[in-house]
Design a protein around this nucleic acid. Structure first.
Length: 592
RNA sequence: UGGCCCGUCGUCUAACGGCAGGACGCUGGACUUUGGAUCCAGAGAUGGUGGUUCGAAUCCACCCGGGCCAACCA
């Protein structure tokens, strides 16, 4: 008991009690940070870093890392998290990605203060460390060709062979490396390699490359350099330069840890040194989270850009209407572990709904309109009904006026001529409540004589039914949304759905790739939707719940007063859809 | 087939030698002028086999399954 109390007290991340009387525990990384703090390993410092490479946009997997690194800094007294661009590859990186990433990190709610760094700014120091390595006999210039190097490396089951250039003298190595920097050689003529062990069972330790020659302009350093350091050399030393304590990265870098430590050791970095710890990257079903694949979707025009609302990018989620709070809540929900896993996208959707439920005012919008004439309502009358923006269980004030008249539109889906059991909506002879308004009864169905399509419903209303249930005690189970024909605003509605139709997009038939699994219905554009007039003043980027439909955001780019465009962020939970599909299954399973 | 890492409800996770707990999802019910939200209840897991131990998800061995590594990417 005393042990539990002590552990409880030492917790820095105060998460809610799960109701079982026991405190919730820290993930293994936070536990390690807490341990290091307790043992005084880093003198009470906690310094993490979020190290994106500016060669693409941030996606929700990066958000997980962002939440972890900035989260740990926030949770610990005096904790700091650096934003560092890991920009050592001049051929793929661009300033536009730097700007986009900064915007995304800020939008996610994280503040790096004055701790903004670039690995490219360390090139001079990194060069000096390389010289140190050479002087210690721990690095050499290899003049083998790319193919030779590959060949000599061996395979995972066979040891490699030493390069013939491995035994060059210190002086020759120093001279060559200096001339590499001076630009005396062509791309690929020489490389700088660590001298470790060509027979090492860990392939990364078989004399890994440290520097390569690339006569290319760097977005930040211009033409100042023609040799560029590689990841394994750069990252650990950048961490050391910034005095990072906990260097957190994903599982695929587990093999790199030995090299991380080797470089630090041999470059003479003093203790306390940064320590690398790996965790599982985020994988989400019904989408892809690899930069390579996301770039392909953008370049092939499968989506409209990095910020297409179907993209799992931070920019895409933002334009879709997802809030940073929802993303952070989701990251909290999934936890941190070392098991590679594919998270149910339903969890993300839950986090989004849970957040939007409390923040999005309710309005009425008819996506696919069906005309309804109220035959016993005065033809020229318009009643402006008071309608709360919030349901009774949300403690917020505010309402708007909703016009009601003899001609309205309802959702086409809310009428069925021959309804199944449990369909609580409009059907011949049936009554429904119009949200915030009267009860109406369907008296007549008007059809197009040619096609047979229902074109209009003729209904009567109960004048006594505006407030509360009907006096005669009859039950009206269904409530549907509607808009008044004369005052409704036409709008475009973009219904976004999952980008892929299969949980694992990479599971493609032989010879085909993930793009065959793209969901052709991931975007359905509705041109003729009608929304209540109160939304006219909402600036682009306003969030609403369209009652019974879902959460929507007026598109920040395309929506304008008079030409409203709404993006569906996520649908509401749809119990009816579940009942309907279950009923269908039951009917199919039953002998006729 | 070499090395490293990892296997707990359908999914994401907790339990660190002592009652396998939570969340999402699912099922049923209550409530309801959103088939939303909320509330209540329920079903549901330690990959396998041995061993150590009074006691094993936890420690050990073997097996099975999964991931990563043979870019001058990160």
């Amino acid at each position: 008991m005393g042990k539990a109390t002590e552990r409880d007290r030492s917790r820095k991340k105060q998460v809610s009690d799960s109701g079982n009387g026991r405190p919730e525990s820290l993930d293994f990384i936070r536990a390690k940070v807490a341990e290091d703090l307790k043992s005084g390993r880093y003198g009470g410092r906690v310094v993490t870093r979020f190290p994106p490479e500016p060669n693409g946009y941030l996606h929700i997997g990066h958000a997980k890392s962002c939440c972890l690194n900035f989260g740990i800094a926030l949770e610990n007294e005096g904790g700091v998290c650096h934003l560092r661009f890991d920009d050592t590859n001049p051929e793929t990186e661009d300033i536009k990605y730097v700007e986009a990433i900064k915007e995304d990190v800020r939008w996610l709610g994280f503040d790096w203060g004055d701790k903004l760094f670039h690995a490219a700014d360390y090139f001079e120091q990194l060069y000096d460390y390389a010289v140190t390595l050479i002087k210690r006999g721990k690095a050499y210039v290899d003049s083998s060709s790319e193919e030779e190097i590959r060949e000599y490396r061996g395979t995972v089951t066979e040891p490699g062979r030493e390069s013939p250039y491995r035994s060059r003298s210190l002086e020759e190595n120093l001279d060559l490396f200096e001339r590499m920097r001076a630009g005396e050689f062509e791309d690929g003529e020489h490389v700088l390699r660590a001298k470790i062990d060509m027979a090492h069972p860990n392939m990364l330790m078989r004399d890994p490359l440290l520097y390569r020659i690339r006569h290319a302009s760097h977005y930040r350093r211009g033409d100042a350099w023609c040799i560029y350091p590689l990841y394994d050399f750069t990252h650990c030393l950048s961490d050391a330069i910034e005095e990072i304590t906990h260097s957190l990265c994903t599982l695929e870098f587990e093999n790199n840890r030995a090299l991380y430590d080797w470089v630090l050791d041999n470059a003479g970095i003093e203790h306390p040194r940064p320590e690398q710890t790996e965790f599982a990257r985020l994988d989400l079903d019904y989408t892809v989270l690899s930069k390579r694949k996301l770039i392909r979707l953008v370049e092939e025009g499968q989506v409209s850009g990095w910020d297409d609302p179907r993209m799992p990018t931070v920019a895409g989620l933002r334009r879709r209407g997802v809030t940073p709070e929802a993303i952070r809540a989701f990251c909290d929900m999934i936890g941190i572990d070392k098991v590679n896993s594919r998270v149910d996208i339903g969890k993300l959707e839950y986090a989004i709904r849970n957040d939007l439920n409390r923040r999005a005012p309710r309005v009425l919008c008819v996506l696919r309109p069906l005309k309804v004439v109220i035959t016993n309502y005065p033809e020229d009358e318009v009643e402006w009904l008071d309608a709360s923006y919030w349901p009774r269980d949300i403690a917020k004030q505010g309402s708007r006026k909703l016009p009601f008249s003899c001609e309205i539109y309802v959702e086409r889906e809310d009428f069925m001529e021959d309804p199944p059991r449990k369909f609580f909506r409009l059907a011949p002879g049936r009554e429904v409540r119009l949200r915030h308004s009267y009860i109406v009864k369907c008296e007549e169905v008007v059809k197009d004589p040619e096609s047979g399509e229902v074109t209009e419903l003729r209904c009567t209303y109960d004048p006594e039914s505006l407030r509360g249930p009907p006096a005669d005690g009859r039950k009206v189970k269904g409530t549907i949304h509607w808009v008044s024909a004369a005052q409704a605003l036409p709008c475009e509605v973009r219904l976004y759905d999952r980008l892929f139709k299969t949980p694992d997009p990479d599971d493609a038939p032989e010879g085909q790739d993930f793009t065959v699994n793209l969901n052709p219905e991931s975007l359905v554009i509705l041109e003729g939707s009608l929304v209540e007039p109160s939304v006219a003043d909402g600036p682009p980027g306003t969030r609403y719940q369209f009652e019974r439909q879902g959460y929507f955001l007026s598109d920040p780019v395309d929506s304008r007063p008079g030409a409203l465009v709404f993006n569906r962020t996520v649908t509401l939970r749809d119990t009816w859809a579940k009942i309907a599909s279950k009923t269908e299954q039951d009917d199919q399973g039953r002998p006729t």
